[in-house]
Design a binder for these strands. Structure first.
Lengths: 226, 226, 226, 226
DNA sequence: AATGAATGAGAATTCATTCAT
DNA sequence: AATGAATGAATTCTCATTCAT
């Protein structure tokens, strides 16, 4: 009774060669994500994970030596996936700074990452991160890279409009915080927070700061209730 | 060798009579908070909690029947404490709507609640909330009440300035999200986010929306590195 | 179906206070000895040990934290017991050096220590000692103390008879080696080596070296076939 | 990264034809010996053994069906090697009985067998022998054959010197025991027992019993610290 | 012959919970 | 109220063994 994921990530980074062994590893990681989302971090056992891919109990220790290793690799996988999504969004974005900023912020509401299952897992790792240095480092790093991209775009946009004196860091921090907060809303009150509403909230802020530039494009798909 | 908390909360609501039994319960809850912050949710055992108050192993089952009950009561305790802080802030706030809004937002950065230990525990519960309905309900409810207070003040402020058409919910949601996001920053990157900076970020948003009303009062104590 | 020991050792050293907890510890150590003798070192499980005292599976971890600790403590227990036997024998020995030497050597054939069960356990530890420094240290130390007592008596006896030039160390080493070898015989070929024969062999050597002093006293009890 | 032995034994008996398959078997047996010496009996796994010859995990089951079979064959290999050494020594010995006895006893200190690694493995098997009849039989038999050779030579030497009434069995038993005891010393206190000293101790006994016949020949190589 | 992925039984260990004192 | 010994279910981990390639 293999429980399996939803939106499969677009192969986060072209990792390793595509051996059978690596396929299994990925299967197990996905099963781990599914289990954490469903049962929580504390109640996720290796037996659950193995059952999720329809294999025997010992399988995880065979591919990951440790439970801890599996968990680390799972977080790494999520971080890779997340990075891939926003970088890809930037790659496809229009040429102007405003377009790029728009794309970057909207990427955080891409259904691949912005869905209750994935968000639940992220917050599960956040919840353990204070007591686990490895998690903390991975989470920190995920944020850091995204933040830099965000701040640089804000700075450019401010420069363009001649507002060099405004603190780009403050704005980027605020945007980042809003997004994180909206993710948390999706986790805690999924019924009250549609994807559309979340995007509007984030864009509402952008539009307030960079007046007139940002309103929601209407092609947005709403994946509420996931 | 009782490990014990920092800023003890101002007796969240005067509930129960102050029996010996209730003192013990509170000791145990505080020890639970300390343990979750230190060891994480998954590694917090009843033995840890008991050791934290210097009592014997079986003590928790005596006062809380269940581990689950202890955990629920701990979350309830945190929620009470949080509610107490912002309500108390409103009670002491000046008469104007702007003052009240300022006080409400600043309450979220009161050292009683805005410190890395407490935040870690909140996020530990968030992390488990998807799979545990009781936690979800408690977390939802905490947010709900705070959100309503926040939105009503926003609405009043908009009304005062004749901007009735603006969506108060959108603004309240954004403020709420920013605050949550700033809490997460405090958890993940405590060294990069001072209390002062966090307040500035939140107020920065308010000031953008309600222009000119909000700047940081200079009595702010900075408790960075907690 | 508690499997239990034979000749209970005469309380090796007046250890700790005689709490209930210490009684359990000793029970478990004895059960460990029994199990190693019966099943061998490699096949001795904590479940076996627990079953040996009629308690539940988790009991060993409760009293010894570790399997390794249990094993170390078991070896220590055996070493204490062994030391106690030969020291006690010396205490009761007659006043002459020859009498003392006789007593010391005969102590190694005291049924408390010289029986196939105990010997099997000693050799089980010897067998693991190369790869386990703790065992090695404990075994070495056991030998060392006994050896010194033995050599000093040999030296005194040589001095008494004016043979100062003879190498007492060589003789003591030989006696020690003979005894160890006889223990091994008891393990490997119990049917061919009665206690009486073993004693005769050891005394035969003593008598050859210190001519005329040593023949077997006839009160020896033979515990062959144990 | 094949861990491999030291003094390779002089092909114990010319058994089996020298097929590739038999080479593999011997490689695996040697790897087993190395592993037991290094990690102990209990911690020697088939994976270790396979790794020792640089082959894959499943290899042992291919050549030995069983772990038990591998272990039995390993003990048999050691026994063959041991027998080969002392028989070869007898073959090369001088014509007199004393010379032959000297050669037989000295064979037990031949570096091929008298080194800490091999001794550790012997004692590992001794340690398990009480609970494993196959090991017991093999160990017993090894001793038996050697013992008979030893006793016969003792008897002849006694006959030669007209001491027919002396118990040759007692003397042979004592010599055997001394040798075993000296092996144990080498295992437990390798730094205190040089090969030379061990030989002196054994010969010291022979010389005491068969006065004047036995002193150490000076060509002895000392392999202390092995 | 050899590989190495997969199995699954069994081991140690952890820990919430019970209960006699 | 509190203790702490004991329980036993659950979990991680190990490893001999199997088997398709």
């Amino acid at each position: 009774m293999a429980e399996q994921s939803m939106a499969d990530p677009p192969e986060p980074r072209q990792r390793h060669t595509d051996t059978l062994k690596n396929r299994r590893r990925e299967q197990l990681i996905k099963s781990t994500i599914t289990s954490i989302a469903k049962r929580g971090f504390a109640d996720t056992t290796l037996a659950n994970v193995a059952e999720g891919v329809g294999l025997s109990r010992g399988i995880v220790n065979f591919h990951f030596t440790n439970k801890e290793t599996l968990l680390n690799d799972t977080l790494q996988y999520l971080a890779d996936e997340y990075r891939h999504v926003w970088r890809h969004a930037l790659d496809r974005a229009g040429p102007t700074v405003a377009e790029r900023l728009y794309a970057l912020v909207m990427a955080d509401f891409d259904p691949v990452v912005y869905n209750r299952k994935k968000i639940a897992v992220w917050f599960a790792f956040y919840g353990e991160s204070k007591s686990r240095p490895t998690y903390l480092a991975l989470c920190e790093q995920r944020d850091e890279q995204h933040y830099i991209a965000l701040r640089d775009l804000c700075r450019q946009l401010l420069d363009e409009s001649g507002r060099m004196t405004v603190d780009a860091d403050l704005i980027a921090t605020a945007i980042s915080a809003i997004i994180d907060g909206l993710w948390l809303d999706r986790l805690l009150t999924p019924n009250k927070m549609s994807t559309k509403r979340a995007k509007e909230t984030a864009l509402g802020y952008l539009d307030t700061v960079f007046s007139g530039h940002f309103t929601l494009h209407t092609d947005a798909t709403d994946t509420r209730h996931v």
